[in-house]
C-alpha cells in the first residue's frame, strides 16, 4: 500500500491505496464521487475526464499514486453551493448551457465533456466551431451527434466572456 494525499474539489483527502488503483476508481469508490464516469476504460472516450493541477486528463489512465500531492477538480465541484436551496442558481455557465442548448441526451459523456470544455475555454475563451470540435476530440458522445454540444460550449463561452455571440453551427 502507498499513502496518497490530494485535494479533490477543494477538500483534502488522505488514504492508503494499492499502487495499481486508478484515479477514477479512487474518486468513485474511495470518495464516493460517482459524478465522474467510466465509459470505455481504454483511454479513448473521455467520460472520465477530470482536471489534475488545472489540466484535463483521462482519470482512467492515471494512477492514484501519480496524482499524489495534486489538485483534482471533478464535475461534482463545478457548481457553486447556493444557500437559498435553488440548486440551478449555482450552476456553472457550462452546466447551464448544456441544459438550455440540449447538449446531452443520455448524459453519460456529459461530465467529461464539460470538464474538457472548461479546460478548453481557459486556454481559448472565444473558440470557433472548429476549435471546439478539435479541442474536444478526446471526448466521444454516442447520442447527440455533437452539434448541440458545440453550441453549448460556445454559448457558455459567450456568457463567461460577458457577451452575446451567434452560436449557430452547421449540422
Amino acid at each position: 500500500m502507498t499513502s496518497v494525499q490530494m485535494n479533490v474539489d477543494g477538500e483534502t483527502h488522505s488514504d492508503e491505496v494499492e499502487p495499481r488503483l486508478l484515479l477514477v476508481h479512487y474518486l468513485r469508490e474511495f470518495l464516493g464521487k460517482t459524478g465522474t464516469n467510466v465509459g470505455c476504460d481504454t483511454s479513448n472516450c473521455g467520460a472520465c475526464t477530470v482536471h489534475l493541477d488545472g489540466r484535463s486528463v483521462k482519470s482512467c489512465t492515471v494512477l492514484a499514486v501519480q496524482a499524489d500531492g495534486g489538485d483534482i477538480d471533478t464535475i461534482e465541484g463545478l457548481a457553486e453551493f447556493s444557500s437559498n436551496g435553488d440548486e440551478e442558481a449555482g450552476w456553472h455557465p457550462l452546466q447551464r448551457a448544456f441544459h438550455t442548448e440540449h447538449g446531452l441526451q443520455c448524459g453519460y459523456c456529459t461530465p467529461g465533456m464539460i470538464m474538457a470544455a472548461k479546460d478548453l475555454l481557459s486556454e481559448n475563451p472565444d473558440p470557433t466551431e472548429d476549435e471546439v470540435r478539435h479541442g474536444l476530440e478526446g471526448n466521444l458522445c454516442r447520442c447527440t451527434g455533437y452539434v448541440n454540444i458545440v453550441k453549448a460550449v460556445r454559448t457558455a463561452a459567450a456568457e463567461m466572456r460577458g457577451d452575446k455571440v451567434d452560436t449557430e453551427v452547421g449540422a
Partner: peptide, 9 residues
C-alpha cells in the same frame, strides 16, 4: 498527437 488529455499527460 492524440487529443488534449493525452497531450497533457
Amino acid at each position: 498527437v492524440g487529443d488534449a488529455q493525452v497531450r497533457h499527460r
